[in-house]
Design a protein around this nucleic acid. Structure first.
Lengths: 235, 235
DNA sequence: ACGAGTATAATTGTATACAATATACGCGAT
DNA sequence: ATCGCGTATATTGTATACAATTATACTCGT
């Protein structure tokens, strides 16, 4: 019997392809490669000291993650996120994070619950100290815990994708204002609803948490960041 | 200025990689390659008359579509769908198809509306005649139209992914009983809600449409098909 | 007969060579 | 000057060669 169902990271750190994939994803999300920039196989291969083969395979993965777009016989381009895309993602996430919280209410383990409480405690601490990087990291972590707790591989995977997709935008806004405190307070309420076993409440709070996050983004600078595309998202 | 944002199929039909990708996807969904079966690069390359290179790249894409799982240095295996996966997908789809219908209510074009009405009309016809294949195809088509009509690339893409993912299961059950008629009737109600501009009703109906589809699957044979994994999905 | 260890084969991972395609440039005609 | 066209160049697509890893089979000792 083979062990096909063992848990392997699809982006393994040990193959060249995996390393290239991770590096490029990091560089795109961090903004090293800007929107619509063309990624050339040889250039990236030389920069990382590998041949085109693993680079090309990494490209295929990046494309399906939505980070680049490959045009046959032409090239690979970093995908742009329009303001409308961001709005759509938050609408979708609002529903799915709600579902996730609802499911987590019944499925969460004691360890995960503790991790969640610790996360909120730590976030409070760093909020007081004004450690913006840690706050952003803990915010991501909270959602990761929630995704894991819902006990649905598919939902977890889907939410992670969307979450990652908006990281570029989210980090900038979370670090520039007082949303951190409010966000953590909402995390606390979600956590307490889950702890109390109130699935409906947890769902509703998670729904609203996303709506608030989005509203905040719109208020604080989404327009500047993606100004030229804002017309699309006017709706 | 480059035309990076033009619409190209990510699975282009003209490159070898694209053709391999489509062929393998088709073969997996149709059941030619069974669950947990190992796909070997050389074997598939020879069968299709191509080298390993395009096959390997197609594999990367298939993995991110969730159809196969690549274990580093070992091989590529067709992923199994557990009963729990199916349940999760329908939960997710219930929410997202609802969102899709809601958005479509405001965004649908006259052409799409007509296409939808025609779809339902045709489905009625084939239902009378008992043309099971056409019924299944029209069912898929209805959802495709709806996805397009919501005017959200991301939501459309997400829903298409899930839809495709359960095709293996869905076809079997839709073709074996009287769900076809009920399904088309629900399509009609959704369509009329959209036509009447009642977004909330359209959303609610689409939600329920998915729940009904799932319930029907459970009643009619999901257990047989994925019997050995049903315990996971007990919930 | 059984298991450890090792050689052998099969398979994937990576690099390179070659082919096809798209882009850029230059040259000439108008 | 501008447009058309052909050649040169760059870039991606594919095939093949080689390296590394994993699976298999066999030998040998007990």
């Amino acid at each position: 019997m083979t062990n096909y169902d063992k848990k392997y990271d699809s982006d393994d750190k040990y193959s060249l392809r995996g390393r290239v994939f991770q590096k490029l994803r990091e560089d795109i999300l961090s903004g090293k490669y800007k929107e619509h920039e063309e990624l050339k196989e040889v250039a990236i291969g030389e920069e990382l000291g590998v041949s085109r083969t693993p680079v090309r395979e990494a490209f295929r993965q990046l494309e399906l993650e939505g980070l680049i777009k490959i045009v046959p016989n032409k090239g690979a381009y970093v995908t742009g996120i329009t303001a409308k895309d961001v709005k759509d993602i938050y609408m979708i996430r609002s529903l799915l994070e709600g579902l996730c919280a609802r499911l987590a209410t019944e499925k969460i383990t004691k360890e995960q619950m503790e991790e969640m409480e610790e996360n909120i405690y730590l976030a409070d601490f760093h909020e007081e100290k004004g450690h913006l990087d840690q706050i952003a990291e803990l915010d991501n972590k909270f959602h990761d815990i929630l995704y894991e707790a819902c006990d649905s591989k598919l939902l977890e995977h889907t939410l992670r994708d969307f979450h990652r997709y908006v990281l570029r935008v989210r980090q900038k806004t979370l670090a520039t204002n007082t949303r951190g405190r409010a966000s953590n307070e909402e995390h606390r309420q979600i956590m307490e609803a889950i702890k109390a076993g109130d699935a409906s409440l947890a769902e509703k709070l998670a729904n609203q948490h996303m709506i608030n996050a989005y509203d905040n983004m719109v208020k604080n600078g989404l327009k500047e960041i993606y100004g030229e595309n804002m017309t699309d998202g006017k709706n």
